[in-house]
């Protein structure tokens, strides 16, 4: 009746170990790609944040919490706070222009051949990205740490 319990949370298979190492940067780049294109194509802060947290969670299972913390360099909680702050920061530029707060502001300019569109909306989406990333990593890392 009782299922077999997974004894340790670090799976020491060579393939996973190596794969996680290579997949992490790829997945992170992919998440940034999803984040930036999110306004026009499927993607955006929520999805990109989930992909990025997936990357770290995979790495965490392969290499353990301590090593994940090392490559992350920041506390996941700080990422969470950063996300919330960015979300809040996107509120104010509109007010400076005398519009209702959270009114989107756009700054467009061309960089060489490409048209670059910066906006408070992008800042907000980046905030969502970090908030989701921070939330999931806080949860998963506290759980794995409590296990050890």
């Amino acid at each position: 009746m009782d299922d077999n319990k997974p004894k340790i949370m670090t799976f020491n298979t060579l393939i996973l170990h190596t794969a996680a190492l290579f997949l992490l940067p790829l997945q992170l780049i992919f998440s940034v790609f999803l984040l930036l294109r999110g306004h026009d194509e499927p993607g955006g802060g929520f999805i990109a944040g989930l992909v990025a947290s997936g990357a770290f969670v995979l790495y965490l299972f392969a290499h353990g919490v301590a090593s994940t913390r090392e490559i992350m360099r920041v506390e996941p909680r700080d990422l969470l706070a950063l996300g919330l702050l960015l979300g809040l920061a996107a509120m104010f530029p509109g007010m400076l222009n005398g519009e209702a707060f959270l009114t989107a502001q756009w700054w467009e300019f061309s960089l060489g051949d490409t048209q670059v569109k910066l906006s408070t909306v992008l800042i907000f989406d980046i905030g969502v990205y970090f908030a989701v990333l921070g939330t999931i990593l806080t949860i998963v890392m506290s759980l794995t740490e409590s296990e050890e």
Binding site: G43, G44, S119, A131
Partner: peptide, 27 residues
């Protein structure tokens, strides 16, 4: 809103205040 993904535009522009609330719930 200069966005072609309408779902994302709703999330981060038209209803951004709701989304802000939601990321706070996550936090």
């Amino acid at each position: 809103a200069k966005g072609r993904n309408i779902v994302n535009v709703i999330l981060v522009d038209f209803r951004a205040l709701d989304t802000l609330g939601e990321i706070f719930v996550l936090a």
